[in-house]
Simulated assay, not measured.
Amino acid sequence: MTVLLIALGAALGAPLRYLTDRAVQARHGSPFPWGTLTVNVAGSLLLGGLLAAPVDPAVTALVGTGFCGALTTWSTLSYETLRLARTGKRRLAYANAALSVAAGLGAAFLGYALVTALTG
Rank of each mutant, 00 (worst) to 15 (best):
Thr2Arg: 10
Thr2Ser: 11
Val3Gly: 03
Leu4Ile: 11
Leu4Arg: 05
Ile6His: 00
Ile6Phe: 01
Leu8Pro: 03
Ala11Asp: 01
Ala11Thr: 10
Leu12Met: 12
Leu12Ala: 15
Ala14Arg: 04
Pro15Gly: 09
Leu16Ile: 14
Arg17Asn: 02
Arg17Met: 02
Arg17His: 05
Arg17Val: 01
Thr20Tyr: 01
Asp21Arg: 08
Val24His: 01
Gln25Met: 04
Gly29Leu: 06
Gly29Asp: 14
Gly29Tyr: 12
Ser30Trp: 08
Pro31Ile: 07
Pro31Phe: 11
Phe32Ala: 03
Gly35Gln: 07
Thr36Phe: 01
Thr38Cys: 15
Val41Leu: 09
Val41Lys: 04
Ala42Ile: 14
Gly43Ile: 03
Gly43Lys: 05
Ser44Gln: 05
Leu45Trp: 13
Leu46Ile: 13
Leu47Asp: 01
Gly48Glu: 06
Gly48Thr: 06
Leu51Gln: 11
Leu51Phe: 13
Ala52Met: 09
Ala53Gly: 02
Val55Tyr: 06
Asp56Met: 00
Asp56Ala: 10
Val59Cys: 01
Val59Tyr: 03
Val59Pro: 00
Thr60Ile: 00
Ala61Tyr: 07
Ala61Phe: 08
Leu62Gly: 06
Val63Ala: 15
Gly64Asn: 08
Thr65Pro: 00
Gly66Val: 13
Gly66Thr: 12
Phe67Pro: 06
Cys68His: 11
Gly69Pro: 08
Ala70Arg: 09
Thr73Tyr: 09
Ser75Tyr: 05
Tyr79His: 13
Tyr79Trp: 14
Thr81Asp: 04
Thr81Asn: 05
Thr81Ser: 13
Thr81Cys: 06
Arg83Lys: 14
Ala85Asp: 06
Ala85Arg: 14
Ala85Glu: 05
Arg86Tyr: 00
Thr87Glu: 11
Thr87Phe: 04
Lys89Leu: 11
Arg91Asp: 09
Arg91Leu: 10
Arg91Trp: 12
Leu92Trp: 07
Tyr94Asn: 04
Tyr94Phe: 15
Tyr94Thr: 13
Ala95Arg: 11
Ala97Thr: 15
Leu99Pro: 02
Leu99Ala: 15
Leu99Phe: 15
Ala107Lys: 09
Leu110Arg: 05
Gly111Thr: 03
Gly111Leu: 13
Ala113Lys: 10
Leu114Trp: 11
Val115Cys: 06
Thr116His: 14
Ala117Glu: 04
Leu118Arg: 03
Leu118Tyr: 01
